[in-house]
């Protein structure tokens, strides 16, 4: 009997330990789910569910004011109409033009970052100064620029006229200049963000590369062209992609400054979508625009994944 217990006891203990382990693992699973569940629930209800709904609604014809029973399924109708819609095509084109702000802003920001990285006193002050527009409210900024751009009495045109320019542009009131005006403001806002990222990128370039180049007698341009530019390329690529994606989200500036006008010259996909859904109340049609927007951003993201491996010289 005693021998038997002696023999069985260890087995029993091992068994118990195994049970404990299983219980512990189950606990760990529950604990894990407990930690992530608020986030998961929130994302599922507020993001995942609406994504599916957007895709579904893009095949429907429905308006906010009619009951759900009036919803009609129309297949790809919304999409075929979309690509014959002059305003939507204009918005797409404006989006494409707006992308130009990204490289321009990157070039200016890189210049500022290199200048204040090693060549100035009061580096902290410059960082804060150039970052100011980025943290300021877009609505307030837009309103300030609206007055600065005032066609007849605004300070910008007063300065231009005092410099002898007879007919300065009407800026946001002129269909030919409105988009450019908004692009100028967008660049002004984004410089701070780009500059901070570039400054961080510059820190990671090893100093001895520049010292070696100095010994070889390289001038500033050669050093920039052969050391800084290639070694900063991962940062540039990151800024380029996030910059492009963010141009597809520009809404506040247009909503406050031009509402897509004059003559749709500043309408972009996001504005067009908002206008269709919340002003004209065409839900299905707006959802089709959302799907196009979604596909464009998805395409850019895929491009980023592939491109990161291919084009970044590291």
């Amino acid at each position: 009997m005693s021998v038997k217990t002696e023999l069985t006891t260890p087995v029993k203990v091992v068994k118990d330990a195994g049970k404990n382990k299983i219980i512990k693992e189950k606990n760990e699973n529950l604990v894990g789910l407990f930690f992530v569940s608020p986030m998961l629930i929130g994302v599922s209800i507020l993001v995942l569910l609406p994504i599916f709904a957007t895709f579904a609604l893009s095949f429907a014809d429905w308006s906010f004011i009619t009951p759900l029973s009036q919803l009609k399924w129309v297949g790809f109708d919304n999409f075929t109409r979309l690509f014959e819609d002059a305003v939507f095509l204009k918005s797409l084109r404006n989006n494409a033009i707006f992308v130009l702000t990204v490289p321009i802003c990157m070039a200016i920001s890189l210049l500022i970052a290199i200048t204040i990285d090693k060549n100035v006193y009061m580096k902290g002050f410059f960082k804060v100064a150039f970052f100011m527009p980025y943290i300021s409210s877009v609505v307030a900024i837009a309103v300030v620029w609206q007055v600065l751009f005032h066609p007849s009495a605004g300070p910008i045109n007063q300065v231009l006229m005092s410099l002898g320019i007879k007919n300065p542009p009407l800026w946001i009131a002129d269909p030919n200049f409105a988009l450019i005006s908004i692009m100028i403001i967008q660049i002004w806002i984004s410089i701070g963000f780009n500059m901070i990222i570039y400054l961080a990128g510059l820190q990671s370039i090893p100093r001895d590369l520049y010292e070696a180049a100095d010994i070889d007698g390289a001038n500033a341009w050669v050093k920039f062209r052969n050391i800084t530019l290639p070694l900063i390329s991962p940062t540039s690529f990151f800024l380029f992609i996030t910059g492009i994606i963010s141009t597809f989200k520009v809404f506040d500036l247009i909503a406050v400054l031009t509402k897509g006008g004059p003559m749709n010259s500043t309408s972009m996909i996001v504005w067009n979508l908002y206008d269709t859904a919340f002003v004209n109340l065409k839900i299905g049609y707006a959802s089709a625009m959302a799907v196009v927007l979604f596909i464009v951003v998805f395409g850019i993201t895929v491009f980023q994944w592939i491109g990161q491996k291919k084009w970044v010289n590291y």
């Binding site: 986030m39 609406p50 906010f64 859904a277």
Partner: peptide, 30 residues
Amino acid sequence: VKFPFGKFLFMIVLATYMVPPQAILVPQFI
């Protein structure tokens, strides 16, 4: 914390970051 599908769930959450907020406004509103 290690729990089943942890990595997978994180990838899903991360993937939702690239969704432009305007693309899901209408269903959120409804």
